[in-house]
Design a protein around this nucleic acid. Structure first.
Length: 268
DNA sequence: AAGTCTTCCAACCGCCCCATG
DNA sequence: TCATGGGGCGGTTGGAAGACT
């Protein structure tokens, strides 16, 4: 390799760089990233090009908030495989390991911390397996039913990116990963919404067919996810307790994780 | 309105594995 | 068998944007 080191650019990608990369990969395909970077005339490292392509520019990269089904799947798979983000990402079509990793760190770990539970601990797994998971499944089924029966012209045709049946299937087989291939999730129906390629941060994805905002959130907000009865749920194994009534508001993600007040989640 | 804090995520870093010669 | 380079992966960071005071 010649060391006529061109100063490599770093930091945020520009529109022009993205266009160059897209054009080159479209014409010549992926791989040989170092060579690709040079041939494409990009003053970027091969690694940087690869990352930019895989995490942002690749046509099937999905943008926007994770759906509840995806969140459940991440929690489930993480409980089996730990921080194997790439492996987990294989089961969420269109989602990248980076995105899942970020989700875990910013949402799950944060909430776990607030609850004084280590997100990789047995307590966390217990709480998830014994309470959150069945509840999530139940409520998602309810919301699916509600959605199906109430889908009107006001709401575009929506199906879960990852069907519940697939989640259950993967949940059950995750202990023997080789038996589950990513192909087992095939029903990825994109939301058919007007194309808007700029998100609130001003980034853009030239290929994305998704709005930056997740329409499912809005849809689910219209459907109460939790009952309003007051049932305190306790987790003997993790020494903590949840007042279910406090989960009733907001979308499911909030219901799952916004337990940030001491009255909502009490140490026994 | 301005300053500070917090959140979130794109991007980078470093390690490891694997293919190739 | 060993050296080397490319690519994949998980951990971490920087900074933009929003929230809060």
């Amino acid at each position: 390799m010649l060391n006529e080191e061109i100063e490599l650019r770093r930091g945020p990608w520009t529109h022009e760089e993205d266009t160059q990369l897209i054009h080159y990969v479209t014409c010549h395909g992926e791989g040989r990233w170092n060579l690709l970077a040079k041939c494409a005339g990009l003053k970027r490292s091969g690694k940087s090009c690869r990352l930019r392509w895989l995490n942002y520019l690749k046509p099937d990269v999905k943008r926007g908030n994770l759906t509840h089904e995806e969140q459940l799947l991440i929690l489930e798979l993480h409980s089996k495989w730990g921080n194997r983000w790439a492996k987990i990402a294989q089961h969420l079509p269109g989602r990248t390991d980076n995105e899942i990793k970020n989700y875990w760190r910013t949402r799950v770990q944060k909430q776990a911390k607030q609850l004084n539970i280590e997100s990789n601990s047995k307590s966390f797994l217990d709480a998830f397996q014994r309470f959150w998971k069945p509840r999530l499944l139940q409520k998602m089924e309810q919301s699916t039913t509600t959605l199906n029966s109430s889908q009107s012209s006001a709401i575009p045709s929506v199906s879960s990116p990852v069907p519940l049946s697939s989640i259950k299937e993967i949940s059950n087989s995750a202990t023997s990963p080789s038996s589950t291939s990513p192909d087992s999730i095939t029903t990825t129906q994109l939301l058919e919404i007007p194309e808007k390629q700029t998100n609130p941060h001003g980034f853009y994805n030239p290929f994305s067919t998704h709005d930056y905002y997740d329409d499912l959130e809005d849809i689910n907000l219209s459907t109460p996810m939790w009952t309003t009865e007051t049932n305190d749920i306790s987790f003997p194994d993790c020494n903590c307790q949840v007042a279910e009534s406090d989960w009733a508001d907001g979308d499911l993600e909030d219901a799952l994780w916004n337990l940030d007040e001491s009255s909502q989640f009490r140490q026994l």
